[in-house]
Design a protein around this nucleic acid. Structure first.
Lengths: 154, 154
DNA sequence: CTTAAATCATACTAACAAGGTATACTTCAA
DNA sequence: TTGAAGTATACCTTGTTAGTATGATTTAAG
């Protein structure tokens, strides 16, 4: 029930790119410094995003990375899937046969439910949403806030 | 983003007890066999639940464990907290000072949002809800289902 | 009063994943 | 042709998870 740094760093990286969009390729070194994350580690992460087709890499001097897709077409679910694969909350959701009780398991429904809810949320939040959002104050963090899900409130 | 076996086993254990409620103390050995989980491992987990005051233990022959609280007063959040402590989706939610960017971090809001949503769900589902629910068919698992949250639809 | 059934408690280990480094290679603009 | 960048892989260190082993303690039943 924890987000890996891969996800968190990956998201910040993508958000950073969305904010710098239109300014040409951005070097990992720059983002690493700006975000305070290890350069080599970020490189590793951005390569996953590249493989997933979310960013494009330009080699050589003056090179760097840039979004391969407009930021309003990139959701947090895309990012998460790119860096971690389609992770389910518990194994029996993907591969029921792993658990011999799966036919008679009431808990499966709950985990599936929460799992779905999380994915719905993630699918509903784009990089644009994130970029245009305000930084939360400490008080605001208490209750769940509302995100526009491609226009519709989640 | 994965549930530990501790949570999953702990939930099944509690559900098992809710189903057997009123029949006196139940031995771990029995539940372990019924649920197909290692006995020693379950012992370890149930001790956490005991410490949290969710179950009572009765020693000696004829002893076992039983719910210390009526099942409609026990939510999945209680169970999760008992076996894992108050886990947040990412460290910066509990201890902002851990991340020196926390004041200027838009992603924090999203993680907080999802975090809150998960906890709201967990708090809304009691052992009674679970016990009285139907086992899901494979098709049903696709979309998020609706759980009564102490009477109110979640 | 003894025995055995159960909880209770701690220590240990193996396996795995996460987080991060190091090294070396390719590509390509200046 | 040089060096700045991406690309790729291998490695390492640390922490967590999942599970086992061993034994002590309590107590009802015989």
């Amino acid at each position: 029930m924890k987000l890996s740094t891969t996800i968190r760093y990956g998201t910040r990286l993508m958000l950073d790119m969305a904010e710098q969009q239109g300014k040409g390729p951005i070097r990992i070194k720059t983002i690493a410094k700006r975000q305070g994350i290890s350069e080599k580690y970020l490189e590793k992460i951005v390569r996953l995003l590249r493989k997933a087709g979310l960013v494009d890499g330009l080699r050589g001097p003056g090179g760097g990375y840039m979004l391969a897709v407009p930021p309003d077409k990139i959701t947090l679910a895309d990012i998460l899937e790119a860096v971690q694969g389609k992770v389910e909350l518990c194994p029996c959701l993907n591969e029921p046969e792993q658990c011999d009780k799966h036919e008679d398991c009431k808990t499966r429904k709950v985990w599936n439910d929460i799992n779905q809810t999380i994915w719905m949320k993630l699918k509903g939040i784009t990089l644009t949403d994130l970029r245009d959002s305000a930084c939360p104050s400490e008080e605001e963090l208490g209750s769940p806030s509302h995100w526009s899900m491609k226009g519709i409130k989640v």
